[in-house]
Write a protein that binds this DNA or RNA. Structure first.
Lengths: 311, 311
DNA sequence: GTTTTCCGATTGGAAAAACCTATCGAACAC
DNA sequence: GTGTTCGATAGGTTTTTCCAATCGGAAAAC
C-alpha cells in the first residue's frame, strides 16, 4: 500500500498553485523555500506524479497537478471544517448527545426539554432512546448512551448522578370504582385493594411493591404492564388501582370524559425521584451539568406546582 | 491559527473507533500501542477535545469523538480517492488536457480526435480552446495551454514539436468566376488574380502572401478575414480567390448547390504543415507523444487520401 | 557579450516528531 | 489476594522537517 500524502504537503502544494511561485508561497506559509521544495518533491514522490512544471515564469501546474489540486483543495476545506466543528464542540454544547430516557417519563417531559435545548443551543442535537430503567442502566454502562434520564436511585461507582426533581404519584381508578367520587384516599383506604403495576424492569415496580406491603394492599401478580397507557387501560377496566406519575396524568388524562378518575394520595408526598446519570469521566462533565440545569428549568417553568424541585 | 490534525492521526483515530480497542487498533495499524496512544492524545490536543473515553470495556467515543469521527472518515475517503486519481493519472492518459487549436483546423478534425480519444482513454478529457496560431503560441508559452494543434512552423527552443501531416490547400472561387467550370488551375492562371486571405495572426497569411508574390497575384489588402467561413463568403461574392484547407472544404463544402467552386491547384503539392507543440519538459512527454500518434491515426483513418502523412 | 539578478535545487546539520521497548498503575477476574 | 488486561508513561532511536548556506542555470540588465 502506498503511503498517504500529508495534509502539510497538500497545504503547501495548494499555496504553491495559488501563488505560482516557490519563494512567495514559502514566505506566505512562513517557511523557507528549501522546505517548500522538499515538501512538494515529497508529494510528487508519494503520488508518483509530476505536479509542477518548474521554470522561468514561475511554477506552472501540470495537467496532473491541476487534477490533484482540485482534490487537495476539497480535502483542505474539509480539514478546515473539522477545525470549525471542533471549535464549536469545545463549548460542550454542540454535536449529538445520545440520551436514554425512561418510557414512564420521557414522552411527557422531553418535548419541552428538546425545544428549550434547541432554542438555547442550536448546535446541540438529542438522540433519544426510550427504554425501561433497567435497560437504560445497562446501556449507559456499556457506552450505548451518553446520558440517561431515569428514576432514582441509580447505583454504581462508575456513574455520576444529578438529582432533578421529585414527581408525585397519582392514584388512578376506574370510573365505576367506589373511590371514583372521592377527591382523596388515605393509607387505610388502600388496605386490601388490588394494585396494578409495571414490569419489574421499571423502578416503579419495586416502589409500588414496597408501598403495597406497607399498606396491606395486594399487588396483582398476573399482570405486569410495559407502558403507562396499558396500565391505565387495565385500571379503567376495573382490574385494580394504579399509581401513575403526575406528568403522565397531566399529559394524558384531561379530567373530563376520561375512563378513569384521578385521586390525591398522601398529598404529593408519595413521589418518585428523577435524575440524570452519566459515566464518570465520560464526555464533558460541564455540559452534562448544564443539561441537568436545563431540565430543572423546564420542570420549574413548564411544570410548576406539579413536581417538587430538588437541590 | 491552530495546527492541523494530521492524516495519520485521523487514520489512527478512525481505526481506534472501529475496533474500540487500543491494542487491537495498534496491531491492525502495524504499530505498537504506545505509538497509538500518543497519536490519539496528540489529536485530542490539537482539537482541544476529549474524543475517547478510556476505560475497562475498551475505548468508547465521546459525543465529540463521534462528531469528529464522521468528518475524519470523510476526509480519509477523499484521501483514498486522491490516491485512486493519482494511480490513473500515472498512466498519463487521465485528467484534463488543455488543448489550443487553430480555428482553421480544430473544428474540422477535433471532433474525430475527441471521439477516438474518449474511446481509447475514457479518463482523459480535452478542454479545447480555439484561437489564431499567434495567440496559441503566446498562450502555450505562458502556460495557459498544455498542448497546441497548429500550423507549422512553430519556433522556440522552449517548445517541442511533433509534425503530424500536411494538409493540401484548395482553391475556391465564386460560381460566377471564369475558373469555376475548370477542374484545375495552373500557376500561370493565377497571375494578376485577386486573392483573399485571413488576418496576419494566422500562419496561413504569410504563406498565401508568399505564394501571391511568387505567382504575381494580388493579395487583397482591404480585407483580412478571421474565419474560413467568412473567407468563403467573400469568395462567393466574387471579391477574389481564396485558398482553403482541404479539411475545411471536405467538411463545409458539399460540392452540390454550393455558392463556390473548388479547384485543384498544384495537385496537392501546395500544402500547409500541421503539428502538435508543447513546452519542453511540461507534463508527461510520453502522453503528449501518444496524443500526436492518435491524431495521426485519425488523419490516416478518417481523412485518408485527403491529407499527406508525415513521419 | 559580459554581468547581475532571480529562480528552484541541493547540502549539512539541528530540531521536532514518530516510533519502539520496557514498565507502570489501575481495574477487573478468579 | 493473585494474575490478567487495559491504556499511560519513560527513555532512547530513527525519521522527518526545517533552516541557513550554497549551487547552477536561465533570464535580464548593462
Amino acid at each position: 500500500m502506498p503511503p498517504d500524502p500529508t495534509i502539510r504537503q497538500l497545504r503547501y502544494f495548494a499555496m504553491l498553485a495559488q501563488t505560482g511561485h516557490y519563494r512567495r508561497a514559502a514566505e506566505r506559509l512562513g517557511i523557507t523555500q528549501p522546505s517548500l521544495s522538499l515538501q512538494i518533491a515529497g508529494l510528487e514522490e508519494t503520488l508518483g506524479l509530476r505536479l509542477v512544471e518548474r521554470g522561468r515564469g514561475g511554477a506552472v501546474l501540470t495537467p496532473a497537478g491541476r487534477e490533484v489540486l482540485e482534490r487537495a483543495a476539497r480535502i483542505l476545506d474539509q480539514v478546515a471544517a473539522l477545525g470549525d466543528i471542533a471549535a464549536r464542540l469545545r463549548t460542550g454544547m454542540a454535536g449529538t448527545i445520545r440520551l436514554g430516557a425512561t418510557a414512564t417519563l420521557g414522552p411527557y417531559i422531553l418535548p419541552n426539554v428538546a425545544r428549550r435545548l434547541h432554542d438555547r443551543f442550536p448546535d446541540l442535537r438529542l438522540f433519544i432512546h426510550e427504554a425501561a430503567p433497567r435497560r437504560l442502566f445497562d446501556d449507559l454502562l456499556a457506552g450505548r448512551h451518553d446520558l440517561i434520564l431515569t428514576q432514582l436511585p441509580v447505583a454504581s461507582d462508575r456513574l455520576r448522578v444529578e438529582r432533578l426533581f421529585r414527581e408525585p404519584m397519582n392514584l388512578v381508578v376506574a370510573r365505576s370504582h367506589p373511590f371514583a367520587g372521592r377527591g382523596r384516599v388515605t393509607d387505610a383506604d388502600l388496605a386490601g385493594q388490588t394494585v396494578l403495576t409495571l414490569s419489574s424492569a421499571f423502578a416503579l415496580h419495586a416502589q409500588i411493591e414496597a408501598l403495597c406491603h406497607e399498606l396491606g394492599a395486594n399487588l396483582r401478580q398476573d399482570y405486569e404492564g410495559t407502558s403507562l397507557d396499558a396500565l391505565r387501560q387495565m385500571a379503567a377496566m376495573g382490574m385494580g388501582l394504579a399509581f401513575l406519575p403526575a406528568l403522565y396524568v397531566r399529559s394524558e388524562i384531561t379530567g373530563r370524559g376520561d375512563d378513569v378518575a384521578v385521586l390525591q394520595f398522601r398529598q404529593d408526598r408519595f413521589t418518585r425521584s428523577i435524575g440524570l446519570a452519566w459515566r464518570t469521566g465520560s464526555g464533558d462533565e460541564a455540559s452534562y451539568r448544564r443539561m441537568a440545569e436545563l431540565v430543572r428549568e423546564v420542570a420549574a417553568d413548564d411544570f410548576r406546582g406539579l413536581v417538587v424541585p430538588e437541590r
